[in-house]
Amino acid sequence: MKKIFAAVITAFLMSAGLVATTSSPAAAACTYPATCFPTITQGSGLNAGANKAKVFVRVGTFGNGRATGPVVFTFVKNNGKSFTFTRDFPAARGKGNIFNFRGLNKGRYTVIVTYQGTDEKYLGSGTSFNTRVKGPRRR
């Protein structure tokens, strides 16, 4: 009964123009620091086979939540060539935080990892580190 009474009062006030409503959530723009949670992105290269890279990435959040969304990996070689990959975080098929990349040439790469939060309550973050891709084995 109390809920019906409150709904009738609210409907009357809205029709009179005394209560404002919006179509988008108030926290969508992250205007207040208390509504947005910063993230910390950490990563490192793992050993992999020929022409492959294996990368461990962790996106930490403050609080009990778990960040999900796209992670952009940019592999930059010393000569300036770069390769960009976008993967969902966490990785699919139970791999958790390990991502595999194929088709890279032998050499050292600087890996730039950028988390782009799709949920408006988690802010984006990034990190960079170096990794090495092995060449094919000689016979």
Rank of each mutant, 00 (worst) to 15 (best):
29 A>G: 12
109 Y>T: 09
80 G>V: 08
66 R>N: 10
130 N>M: 10
100 N>H: 07
80 G>N: 09
71 V>Y: 02
69 G>H: 02
121 K>R: 15
133 V>S: 04
21 T>H: 04
105 N>T: 11
132 R>I: 14
55 V>D: 01
87 R>T: 00
77 K>S: 14
70 P>W: 01
43 G>E: 01
34 A>I: 12
10 T>D: 06
86 T>M: 01
105 N>L: 12
99 F>P: 03
69 G>K: 00
59 V>N: 02
138 R>Q: 11
76 V>N: 13
44 S>E: 13
22 T>E: 08
33 P>D: 10
106 K>T: 13
97 N>G: 00
42 Q>L: 13
34 A>S: 10
8 V>K: 08
31 T>D: 13
36 C>V: 14
84 T>L: 00
97 N>T: 12
37 F>T: 14
18 L>S: 12
130 N>D: 12
134 K>N: 15
61 T>L: 10
58 R>C: 00
123 L>Q: 10
42 Q>P: 00
79 N>R: 04
90 P>R: 06
136 P>S: 13
30 C>L: 07
33 P>R: 04
101 F>N: 05
13 L>Y: 12
25 P>I: 08
100 N>K: 04
126 G>L: 01
85 F>I: 06
93 R>E: 04
21 T>Y: 08
128 S>D: 07
109 Y>D: 07
120 E>W: 04
41 T>I: 05
128 S>Y: 13
13 L>S: 06
51 N>C: 06
12 F>W: 09
1 M>A: 12
73 F>D: 05
128 S>R: 15
24 S>D: 12
54 K>T: 10
5 F>I: 10
137 R>A: 08
116 Q>D: 06
114 T>K: 14
110 T>K: 15
44 S>A: 11
45 G>D: 04
54 K>H: 01
99 F>C: 00
46 L>Y: 05
136 P>D: 10
55 V>H: 03
78 N>W: 02
48 A>V: 09
58 R>V: 06
127 T>D: 01
89 F>Y: 15
46 L>G: 01
69 G>L: 03
134 K>I: 06
85 F>K: 07
86 T>I: 11
122 Y>L: 05
116 Q>I: 08
3 K>W: 09
63 G>W: 08
75 F>K: 06
112 I>N: 14
73 F>W: 03
